[in-house]
Amino acid sequence: MASSEAAQRPTTTQGRDAGRGRAKLPTGPRGPHTSRARKVAANVVLAVVCLLMLSPVLWTAFSVIKPTNVAFLNPPAFTFTPTLDAFVNLWQTTNFYQYLGNTLVVAVVSTVVALVIGLPAAYALSRSPGWVSVALLVAALVFRALPRTAVVLPMYEISRSLGIYDTTLALALALVAINQPFSIWLLRNFFAAVPKEIDEAAMIDGCTRFSMLRLVIIPLMGPGIITAALFMFLFAFQEYLTAVILTDVSSATVPVFIATQLGQTLPLLQQAGAASLLLTLPVFVFAFVAQKYLIAGLNSGSVKG
């Protein structure tokens, strides 16, 4: 954990208004000693929380690298020779890489499309308060809350009749529609944080509404767009119910694949655990990269309501 001194000194990660380089703040009536103890206590609590939050993943990782005959022993085995057989088997005997590919394609395509059509709409909603905008916002709110089954089951029938059932395209389209409301909400708040005067200035300079949006406003809200994109990507990457209904042999995603493995026996169950870990790993990395943007983006106006 960080030393208390480092923690007290405001750092650049603590936001733009952190008062960089300012002298140490007064430490309150109880004096520095109590403050240090409280700091340590807080860090201990955080460490415990982190461990608890990671425990399901860690426990799964243990089970996967154990030899099969002690993988799920009760009481559990704590000494064993680790093996990566489950990962090797997964890679060799299933089309896991294909599912991973499908998942990525669906996530990327749906994110890009949702942004391309969501950005202009969100901008319009932030600049034009009339009743149409209110109606659209309320519609988006309700759509965000819809139970998946209410739209996905008809989508299954529609995709069948259009001949696009079991394609990554159908799944990506469905996810664009399903995740669009959230992105519009988020983006609208980002746009609202950009002063209207900038629009006017740019338009006076001879920009059209569209080129102004493209050249001036969108670059201004970089972190906001990244935040929205990250959320869209995550939602699509994790989606299970929609994917299980709209895909089958040729465009199944990783969550769908893993879901069909959970009732397996040993050693395939270990393989399912391995697949879960392999799905978690990229998002693990993703989480590290993303957290900075998520904070900056969410902070820049999105959720101030």
Partner: peptide, 9 residues
């Protein structure tokens, strides 16, 4: 991490 793992898994 727990937020990015799909619910079922």
């Amino acid at each position: 991490v727990s937020y990015v793992v799909p619910g079922l898994i």
